[in-house]
Design a protein around this nucleic acid. Structure first.
Length: 532
RNA sequence: GGGCCUGUAGCUCAGUCAGGUAGAGCGUCGGACUUUUAAUCCGAUGGUCGCGGGUUCGAACCCCGUCGGGCCCGCCA
């Protein structure tokens, strides 16, 4: 059974109506690692709906969290904002400096700045979650009840965290972090508590009182999270392995949630996505591929498929080169299969059946539109990558596909796909081995590997090519002519030709490529090769 | 120190929860085809299931141990 269906079953035991939550702190640029969080939630929600339940996906924007440090992409001016909440400070402008104008005029915050592009990407991927900005929740008093319980029963909370996480909390620890006179959560010491006020003294010695009902501060993460489960009625939440470790925040959260008077959500811990050869992604280190960047390269279905086709506990290595080509082609192949028919075979082994079922569901979940399955494309990713390189214009690509009977008129989706393919080819993510490289000079190594018969082809190639017009038909005819002149089969003609033109044993069909090249240059190359 | 995840074919992984003759895709090799552009089609190749013990008629799967990789126990998806 597909993992999303396993989760749906688990939810069904609990009830018929579900709110599946995801949450991310908008502290820097979002990356495809964050996509796993949202997509995992989205897929659980889809599976639950498929099973007849009501399910809504929500996205908690943790913009009440403080700025931790001045990241490399920020100006030093942000030093002053360390400890300040992400939803209450200005966004960086193109130079990384605080954009006060936009902050004052539109209320455009640091959190908004990083969130917005991510939401745009999500929309393309077919995910439109309900947004729950956390800072607003604090300010409107949604946390009031949980905050009061936490402060009233601070000793019990402390006991839970210390026992479950196995670490000791510091002397002055209190389950509420007040904002100081400056708007910072850092360096504030709690001096006393009389509901609804938490009295504090900050690092400058200033004193004040924080009203826990008005969001003048926040709950520490380990309480913040279970509090949200309560007032948002969250019944399920996928989270990264960092939260899922034993003694981690889910473990303490479970008990704290019950202290707050509600059941914790059904959890699902997922592994991280790393960048091939570069380790885990991290917004602060700049080691990222953003969702927008990924979407410039591949169709959105492929990103969904990446997540749908991997079990959550499997680490994903995101490879923007060959891995992406293979992934996309696998997806296309699966789209073209008729799983229902395959499953009708009673002789299938259990293993085989599981494999087919999982593939079927993964493909369903990869569809952007939940309500309708996507038909397989008539052109594979690889094939399109070749065409896009050989044909300078889109029109040329369509003509070629039409000529081969692959399609009649290109659909919107294919047009979109070709444009992404072109930007992929233009980027340095495009794998070298997929690039078509015509030799500038004869490739001695390749030519030396040719058999005696094939070398004979090299000798006659110039004369054959000279006899025909420089177009697809002419060049094809010239190859046949070479076969006659050299008295060898077509196989040898092509072997020899690939060695001459591409320094390779094989390659894409030569005639159409050569017809797009300069005749004289190619003939010179042939001549030089024959002279070796 | 405590804990979680992970190790299966050259590569990516499925199969482990319900023990029953090792599985898929890619790759590789061979063949057909060069007016379906590394396509497509056909065929073949491929694994002491990390290692050692135990339970069992039978273990990739359950149990114990061990080694390697990743991670958590401040914050991080």
């Amino acid at each position: 059974m597909h993992w999303s269906d396993v989760m749906a079953n688990r939810l069904a035991e609990r009830g018929n109506k579900h709110i599946i939550a995801t949450g991310i702190t908008p502290s820097g640029e979002f990356h495809i690692g964050h996509l796993r969080e949202i997509l995992t939630g989205d897929m659980i929600a889809r599976a639950a709906r498929k099973a007849g339940m009501e399910a809504e996906l929500v996205f908690v924007v943790d913009n009440a969290d403080p700025l931790r440090k001045v990241y490399p992409f920020l100006d030093e001016a942000y030093e002053a904002f360390i400890g300040h909440q992400l939803g209450s400070i200005p966004a960086p402008d193109s130079e990384g400096k605080p954009d006060w104008a936009r902050f004052n005029e539109e209320g455009w915050t640091y959190g908004d700045h990083f969130l917005q592009p991510f939401l745009d990407a999500l929309r393309q991927i077919g995910v439109v979650p309900k947004l729950l900005p956390n800072l607003a929740a604090y300010r409107s008093g949604k946390f009031a009840e949980a905050a009061r319980t936490a402060c009233d029963r601070a000793d019990e909370v402390r006991e839970i965290i210390e026992r479950v996480s196995g670490r000791e909390l510091p002397e002055g620890w209190f389950p509420w972090q007040p904002l100081d006179s400056n708007g910072s959560l850092d360096g504030v010491t709690v001096k006393g508590y009389e509901f609804p006020y938490v009295h504090w003294v900050d690092s400058t010695g200033a004193q004040g009182s924080s009203n826990i009902e008005k969001g003048e501060g926040k709950l520490p993460w380990r309480l913040d999270w279970p509090a949200k489960w309560g007032f948002h009625n969250i019944t399920c939440e996928p989270f990264g392995k960092d939260h899922g470790a034993a003694g981690g925040s889910y473990d303490t959260g479970k008990e704290i949630a019950r202290l707050f008077g509600h059941e914790p959500p059904v959890p699902l811990t997922y592994e991280w996505i790393s960048l091939r050869g570069q380790g885990a992604m991290s917004s602060s280190s700049g080691n990222t591929v953003g969702p927008m960047e990924a979407l410039r390269l591949v169709p959105p279905e492929i990103l969904r498929f990446l997540v749908a086709n991997s079990k959550p506990n499997k680490a994903i290595e995101f490879d923007t080169a060959m891995g992406l080509v293979n992934l996309a082609d696998e997806y296309e192949r699966l789209c073209n299969r008729n799983f229902r028919a395959e499953l009708e075979d009673d002789a299938l082994s259990r293993r085989k059946r599981v494999q087919i079922e999982d593939a079927m569901v993964a493909v369903e979940l990869s569809s952007i539109d939940e309500s309708k399955a996507r038909a397989g494309a008539s052109v594979s990713f690889r094939h399109l990558a070749l065409l896009a390189q050989v044909k300078p214009t889109d029109e040329g690509v369509w003509q070629s596909l039409q000529a081969s009977g692959a399609l009649e008129t290109p659909g919107e989706e294919l047009v979109d796909r070709l444009s992404r393919m072109r930007s992929w080819i233009a980027s340095d993510h495009f794998p070298e081995e997929m690039r078509i490289n015509l030799s500038q000079e004869p490739n001695k190594n390749a030519l030396n590997l040719l058999s005696v018969e094939q070398k004979r082809v090299v000798m006659v190639l110039h004369s054959a090519l000279s006899q025909f017009p420089w177009d697809v038909e002419g060049i094809t005819a010239a190859f046949k002519e070479a076969s006659v002149q050299a008295n060898v089969g077509m196989r040898d003609v092509y072997r020899a030709s690939y060695a001459v033109f591409m320094g390779a044993e094989r390659g894409p069909r030569l005639a159409p490529i050569l017809s797009n090249c300069e005749r004289e240059e190619m003939l010179t190359l042939v001549k030089k090769s024959a002279a070796l």
